[in-house]
Amino acid sequence: MANQDFVGVPSQVDTQALRRGATEIRRLSRGTLFNYIILGAGAILMVVPFIWMVSTSFKPQAETVSFPPRLFPINPTISNYIDVFDRANMGRLYWNTTFVSVIKTIFNIYTSALLGYIFGKFIFRGRDIIFYILLSTWIIPFEVYLIPLYLMTVQVGWANTYTALIVPEIFTVYAMFMFRQFMYTIPTELVDAARIDGAGEWYIFHRIIIPLSKAALFTLIAFYFMWNWNDFLWPLVVIADQDKYVITVGLATFVGEYWSQHGVIMAGASLAIIPILVLFIAVQRFIIEGVVLTGLKG
């Protein structure tokens, strides 16, 4: 199983392993059916909202309000999706959100990797104090920043710009912390050897540290892209111009305007969810393992 590779259990066959296997088979046959029933019921509860969203999104308005509820529309239609693209300016929302999320994610990951490397692999005076001072901002709820940051943004003339969305969130403490943890798994000898061979510090960071950090890198990129894509409160406050809305704010506004048209609303929700879910399913093994890898040590 994957988790054994992860923990680093030696793979050679020994009697203990065989015994372990036998115990496992016994344990499995006992309670597994019960486990599957409970988990299956739970899984249905987890996906029902998504299924109902998709189902509603293909129904004409009359069918969304008919009783009894039907999973499959009698007259399926894609007109709801066309409506959303027209009325919510969906193409524009996608572009804006992708643009902001990609740039933010690149900054987040690059700065965090760099700082994680510096705090994890160098020894210098004041290192720990600086690290913990930066880290301490992690606990401060965003609501504390909301008002002063907004007023500062207005003051410097960034209100209603992407600069205001991106700049205050270039650096991020969580990824920095995770990279610093990850750096302990990279042998310092490797860095020293490169130095002795005459490699410059930036070369070492870009060509040795970054490639070696792939596991942490991909997981954090996926998470940060998702968080940046789903961000809501700050864009809601800063962006006033409809043309510059990101998808969450666009969807919220759209829902407010067209609430009674259930099919259209659900089509909008589907379109907001789909890109992230596709991305997530494509890299899901990475992510779920990655939560364990970077998030917590059992």
Partner: peptide, 29 residues
């Protein structure tokens, strides 16, 4: 559980990935 555990974890994780704005819209409906 061994068989299907990846699929189950994926299913339970789906809402985590979803924008709260979108899921709240679905729940409201």
């Amino acid at each position: 559980i061994k068989r299907g555990s990846i699929l189950l974890r994926l299913i339970y994780f789906l809402p985590v990935m979803t924008s709260v704005i979108a899921s709240a819209t679905i729940w409201k409906w």
